[in-house]
Nucleic acid binder design. Sequence first.
DNA 1: ACCTGAACACCGTTCAAGT
DNA 2: ACCTGAACACCGTTCAAGT
Lengths: 201, 201
Amino acid sequence: MARVAGLDVPGIVRAALAIADRDGIDRLTMRRLSIELGVTPMATYYHVSGKDGLLDLVIDESIGQLPVVDPETDDGKAVVEWFLRLHKLLVDHPALAAAAAGRRIEGPHAARAAIALTRLGGRICGSDDRAGELVIAAFWLTLGSGQHRASRHAVDLDRSLRTEPASPDDEVALQARILAKSVDSELFSRSLTTLVTAYLG
Amino acid sequence: MARVAGLDVPGIVRAALAIADRDGIDRLTMRRLSIELGVTPMATYYHVSGKDGLLDLVIDESIGQLPVVDPETDDGKAVVEWFLRLHKLLVDHPALAAAAAGRRIEGPHAARAAIALTRLGGRICGSDDRAGELVIAAFWLTLGSGQHRASRHAVDLDRSLRTEPASPDDEVALQARILAKSVDSELFSRSLTTLVTAYLG
DNA sequence: ACCTGAACACCGTTCAAGT
DNA sequence: ACCTGAACACCGTTCAAGT
């Protein structure tokens, strides 16, 4: 109260996500953010520790918006569904996937989700260690797919047909098929299901 | 020939990788690179298209140093081994993993490797499409694990024990076990094998 | 408590000029 | 062909000061 500009953390995070979605993660800078918020570049530093801290907040708040897995379910499908939701989040917000790259994801919301998923998986397969493995591996697969997908955001797929003009026609065709697959969400869904099924039986 | 400073692309790529390994990917800048090479900031721009192009080169050249999968093998283990090598590359050079984040990886070396892997997988399981799926999924898993690992490079694991002081002891212990697992290369190896086996039978 | 102002030490890149 | 010099339009962040 007695706020000069009315800044608060939720508002800052919202504005940051809006910029990242609109202009891409590269264009999310502390200075642009301050302009968007109508304040001086240094005003935001009073509320967040810096750019790194801000990105951690943006990621964890986004994960926090996913519904927590129901701990009463005894169906492995709940695990698949949670990661499908996370994947959808990354696909809908490519900037989020890009921001998550090379960043420790262990905010409170992420930790809570990981614990709930491990508990659920542990009850199904009888081993917390095995369930922990699954959760980590599924996380890797989801992040990898989401980042790959984000990187291909708005890329002309046709261009890839002309990258290796010297190679035989069937090589070009095979390469094009590989690239086309990588933007296929069905493929992620299938490989995730395959992984989860292999772990939970 | 008649070179003033003797710059060439391989030398630039080597110097870039050296800086990234030594000081981290954040500290790899065009200006630092030029100092390391003993030239003006703009000299490198004559040889590479810019920072993005340089990073693409660094990644593809690194992948090019991995042994190509033997196309005569009929054993699915060759696929697992190739991705284990890629994973080791990312673990040994955390900066590479970080640089690969959010970047299209489709340089000539990467494309060649993907084609060889898909061919091999296709012969084993009888379907090029299915093999293509496997290669993409394995790539996601490997990148996800490598980036996760790179992000935890030089992080004090003990710190994570104190992030949620309000939670019950068993929650803390479970979270610590989850985090410990994520830096375990054996876990990556097992989940990769699980995925490949599920696809190639 | 919350924000401003000015400054520091950097960036990537363009463009024109040198040899 | 290969590189330099100067400049432009930015960055993240510190630090002291205002209200």
